[in-house]
């Protein structure tokens, strides 16, 4: 496990530098610096788009919401108080934009249903090459998780938000983040047992 610790140390240092520089980027955006928005977008375009695809289950809509998110960042950067990380601020904005977009699209704002239906979808072609043997069932099981469990799981494991950041994005206490993660693992346990057997 030593290598993991070393990775954590490196990440800690890099994270600190990254957070500082991202605050400055947002400050530049607030001052009207378009290059700063380009820079921020360059850092987050893929994870944000991925997250929005999960939220909307619609590539086209996700792209529109991504634009809305960037607009919100542009017009709202002056409101950023640096009391949260830029990363969690961005995801919170994206989440709210997706919510608003789904409100517009659907008569009833059941945006969680999008996640649910997305989870039930079949695997996409681009995934098949990268799915390791034994993980297909686990991927499918993750897609079957309830929306709240799935979103929490994704924010922490895929988008690498801290519990505190995930709690801020989801507007829930840290304890709830932890319990949702634990619940997700419990739900996945039967499939995990199979995956473990094939991986070991």
């Amino acid at each position: 496990m030593a290598h993991v610790s070393a990775r954590g140390l490196v990440q800690e240092r890099n994270l600190s530098t990254s957070i500082d520089s991202e605050i400055l980027i947002v400050a530049r955006i607030a001052a009207g610096d378009q290059h700063a928005l380009v820079e921020l977008y360059g850092r987050y375009q893929r994870p944000l788009y991925s997250y929005l695809r999960l939220r909307t289950n619609d590539d086209q809509l996700a792209e529109e919401v991504l634009q809305d998110t960037l607009l919100a960042v542009w017009t709202g950067a002056h409101r950023f108080r640096a009391q949260s990380s830029v990363r969690s601020w961005l995801y919170a904005i994206a989440r709210r934009q997706a919510h608003n977009a789904l409100r517009r699209v659907r008569p009833h704002p059941q945006d969680e249903l999008a996640l649910r239906s997305m989870h039930g979808s079949e695997s996409r072609p681009e995934e098949t090459a990268i799915v390791k043997e034994g993980l297909e069932d686990l991927v499918a099981a993750i897609r079957q998780l309830s929306p709240v469990l799935s979103e929490t799981l994704m924010l922490v494991t895929v988008y690498e938000l801290s519990y505190e950041e995930a709690g801020m994005v989801l507007e829930i206490p840290i304890g709830t983040v932890k319990s949702r993660l634990s619940k997700a693992r419990s739900t996945l346990r039967p499939v995990l047992e199979m995956a473990r057997g094939e991986q070991t």
């Binding site: 375009q45 590539d59 634009q67 996409r124 681009e126 993980l135 993750i142």
Partner: peptide
């Protein structure tokens, strides 16, 4: 188990990149 879950979650979240003209459209709106 968490390493397995993380790997699978990354696969579940994988997908295409956004269109290259997203920012252009944002600037046009701005």
């Amino acid at each position: 188990e968490w390493q397995l879950i993380t790997a699978a979650a990354n696969v579940a979240a994988s997908g295409p990149s956004p269109s290259p003209d997203v920012l252009d459209r944002v600037w046009a709106t701005i």
